[in-house]
C-alpha cells in the first residue's frame, strides 16, 4: 500500500477512536431512574390540626386573616434514620447520584458514603443538609407532602398552653433564645415538651422547609408596609407585608425563607411532613 493510504487509514482509525472516546455512556444504561419515587414506610405519629383563621406574620393580603383548613402534621421532624431508608429505596436521591439542580454539593455533607450515617450522628436526630427538592421527594415517597408556610406558621403560634401565644412577650423571647443555641440540630427529636397541639421541636432543633417557601418576597426592610420594597423586582410586591413587628423570631424565619434557594442544603435545616385530612383530596 502507498504511504498516503496508510496515513489515511491511520487517520480514520484515530477519528474513530476519538469518536468512541467522546461518545457518552448510553443515557438509559447504568443511569438511575428519576421519574418515579419508591415508597417508604414511616412510623411517625401525625397530629390532627383542626385549622382555623390566622393572621400571617408576613404576606397577609390587605391585612386579611388567612383560613387554614384542617390538616395532619408529623409530630416531629424527619430523622437521619428515616432519610437513610428513603435514599436506600431511592438511589436517585443518594448523595452520589443526586442532580446538582436538586441539591448543592453539601447535600448530606457528613455522610461518609451513600448509605452510611455520619459516625457520631444519632439516627433519631433530625436530618439536615437536605434541599427542598429532596425534602419534597421524601414526603412524596412517604405518601405525604411538605406543610405549607401557613400550616407551619399556624402550629408555630402555639406555646405549651395556648394555640396562639403570639401576644405573650415570653413566646418570642423564648424562641430567640432557642435559635441562638449552637449544635442543637444534633440532639434527638422529642426530648423537649410538645406544644399545645402535641407537636414537638417546632423551634428548638432545626429550621424547617415549607412547601411554598418561595412565596415570600421581601427585599430589605418591609415593616413599613412595603414602601421600601424594590417593586421592580416583584410584581404586586407591595400587596404583602409584615403584620407583627415585634415577633423577631418570625422575622428570622421569614428572612431565612427569603434567602434560601430550593437546592440549598444547610447545616441546621431539615423538615417534617404533612398530609391533607382524609376528607380532602390529596394534591
Amino acid at each position: 500500500m502507498k504511504p498516503a493510504t496508510y496515513i489515511l487509514l491511520l487517520l480514520s482509525l484515530l477519528a474513530q477512536s476519538a469518536c468512541t472516546k467522546e461518545k457518552p455512556h448510553d443515557e438509559k444504561q447504568g443511569e438511575v431512574v428519576r421519574a418515579s419515587i419508591g415508597p417508604i414506610k414511616t412510623t411517625v405519629k401525625m397530629v390532627y390540626i383542626p385549622g382555623g383563621e390566622y393572621m400571617p406574620f408576613y404576606g397577609a393580603i390587605d391585612s386579611n386573616a388567612v383560613k387554614v383548613p384542617a390538616f395532619l402534621i408529623d409530630e416531629r421532624a424527619v430523622t437521619n434514620e428515616e432519610f437513610l431508608s428513603f435514599v436506600t429505596a431511592n438511589p436517585q436521591w443518594r448523595k452520589s447520584s443526586i442532580l446538582r439542580i436538586h441539591a448543592d454539593t453539601n447535600y448530606l455533607r457528613d455522610w461518609p458514603s451513600d448509605l452510611e450515617l455520619p459516625k457520631d450522628a444519632r439516627p433519631d436526630a433530625p436530618v439536615c443538609f437536605v434541599s427542598w427538592f429532596a425534602a419534597k421527594a421524601f414526603a412524596k415517597s412517604a405518601g405525604k407532602r411538605l406543610p405549607t408556610l401557613d400550616e407551619w406558621e399556624f402550629i408555630a403560634m402555639a406555646d405549651a398552653d395556648t394555640f396562639n401565644a403570639r401576644s405573650k412577650k415570653q413566646y418570642s423571647d423564648a424562641i430567640i433564645q432557642l435559635y441562638m443555641e449552637k449544635g442543637r440540630q444534633f440532639k434527638p427529636v422529642k426530648q423537649s415538651a410538645p406544644n399545645y397541639w402535641g407537636v414537638y421541636n417546632v423551634f428548638d432543633l432545626i429550621w424547617e422547609w415549607t412547601d411554598d417557601f418561595n412565596s415570600i418576597m421581601s427585599i430589605g426592610d418591609s415593616r413599613t408596609g412595603g414602601e421600601n420594597n424594590n417593586k421592580d423586582l416583584f410584581c404586586a410586591a407591595g400587596a404583602t407585608s409584615a403584620s407583627e413587628v415585634n415577633n423577631y423570631a418570625a422575622f428570622m424565619r421569614f428572612g431565612m425563607r427569603t434567602a434560601v434557594k430550593a437546592h440549598y442544603t444547610i447545616a441546621n435545616m431539615g423538615f417534617r411532613c404533612a398530609k391533607d385530612t382524609s376528607n380532602q383530596t390529596t394534591q
Binding site: 439542580i101 411554598d212 412565596s215 404583602t240
Partner: peptide, 24 residues
C-alpha cells in the same frame, strides 16, 4: 410549575383568584 420556579429561584404567590405577585 412550582418545581420549575424553584429551579429558577423565582418567587411567586397567588394573591387572589386572578392575580399573583412574583419576581421578574
Amino acid at each position: 410549575t412550582q418545581e420549575f420556579a424553584n429551579v429558577l429561584a423565582m418567587k411567586y404567590k397567588k394573591i387572589d383568584p386572578i392575580d399573583f405577585s412574583h419576581s421578574n
